[in-house]
Design a protein around this nucleic acid. Structure first.
Lengths: 208, 208
DNA sequence: CCGCATCCTCATGGATACTG
DNA sequence: CAGTATCCATGAGGATGCGG
């Protein structure tokens, strides 16, 4: 990216991550370290030359690093500690996007793994005390699990363990949760929603 | 901007504010509503056609609005409520930029008004209780004032009222405050720094 | 002057083919 | 699989014009 030449934190940040695709690459690596092919799959629409360019840029800026993983010493990309701190700005933008997300997918590509970032970003973490529960999320891909504990939330692939409940819903509603005064965190904490049902859980939260 | 076609909050946010200059325009309007000429001045390096384009884009996206202000019914640009909520993502990026800012200006343009966003973003608001004080900041432009109160911080132009102290320093150090474990908020709260002195206050904070 | 619109040039992005 | 190379389309930046 052409620089801005401004001594301003925002401008300097954007000189590093403001280029097209850059923050989306960071998004993928926040979900999990990945190989080149994984990134191509997780970033539908990116051109191969652009991905290669951006990986070089972000590596030399100190946001991510190439490393050798596995047996065959395959190249893998992972965020540096500083790069991982982009979780804050990214979660903040995800919260800001709620009015754009309630419109629904409208034909856009969707990957369940993206919820691993969005759900924690949208859940209200201020509610205390919070009950401990593990909820399965069926949203059209592999089963995800949401672990809610007094100390926070954690979302990832289902580890095969016991689930307190399973929710099947549309990603549009999961992602739109923070639009209202009530969040899924609230709803779980106050027992306002019934799990183990069908998609009605999220619609119920919305109606309240 | 060309869209991403991804049903992801981050991607949809970037389709609105990810274009070059867009977030910097929002930065200027977070400081204060402004006219076209003010924006040109506050965004050194932007081309006039780009500013006009981006203002149109951001208006139709619902981030800002044109309005008639003053007597001569001059056009003025101001953020919508939704646009103003970009303060969160922007402050988050400003905090992330600290390693980039500690290098100093290096010839980049600097406008004191930018501190009105950066200082509150970098001050640690978790420290409680916080003393009430009004500090003047001399950083090379018009005198700014920082009002610290138990409920939060507020930075703006000096309103002519009494100041508890005045600090003269370099913007590089003000902006780099959050790099260490100690923040200006901490330093004020714990009485670790002496104000009314010269730039040594900030260097002292840094050394601690 | 202020608030843009036009024109032109060059850098960047995107799609696809290709290679070690 | 992990990228390069190539070619074309788009967008940025700078200069200038122009009506109010």
């Amino acid at each position: 990216m052409r620089g801005y030449g401004q001594y301003c934190g925002l401008a300097r940040s954007l000189e590093v991550v403001g280029d097209r695709w850059n923050l989306l690459i960071v998004r993928q690596l926040l979900i999990t370290p990945a190989r080149y092919r994984d990134l191509l799959d997780g970033l539908p629409g990116i051109a191969t030359n652009l991905l290669a360019d951006r990986l070089r840029d972000l590596e030399s800026a100190g946001v991510l690093e190439r490393r050798l993983a596995g047996a065959g010493s395959v190249v893998e990309y992972a965020l540096t500690p500083w790069g991982a701190e982009l979780r804050g700005p990214i979660e903040s933008l995800i919260r800001w996007s709620t009015p754009l997300m309630v419109r629904g997918p409208e034909g856009d590509a969707f990957r369940p793994e993206w919820l691993a970032l969005a759900v924690p970003a949208l859940l209200d973490t201020r509610v205390e005390p919070r009950p401990s529960a593990t909820i399965g999320l069926e949203i059209g891909g592999p089963l995800l699990q949401l672990r809610a504990a007094p100390t926070g939330f954690e979302v990832g692939p289902h580890d095969g363990g016991d689930l307190d409940a399973t929710v099947r819903t549309d990603p549009a509603y999961v992602l739109a949760l923070s639009a209202g005064a009530l969040t899924l965190g609230d709803a779980l904490a106050f027992g306002l929603v019934e799990v183990d049902g069908d998609e009605s859980i999220v619609r119920t939260v919305f109606a309240a």
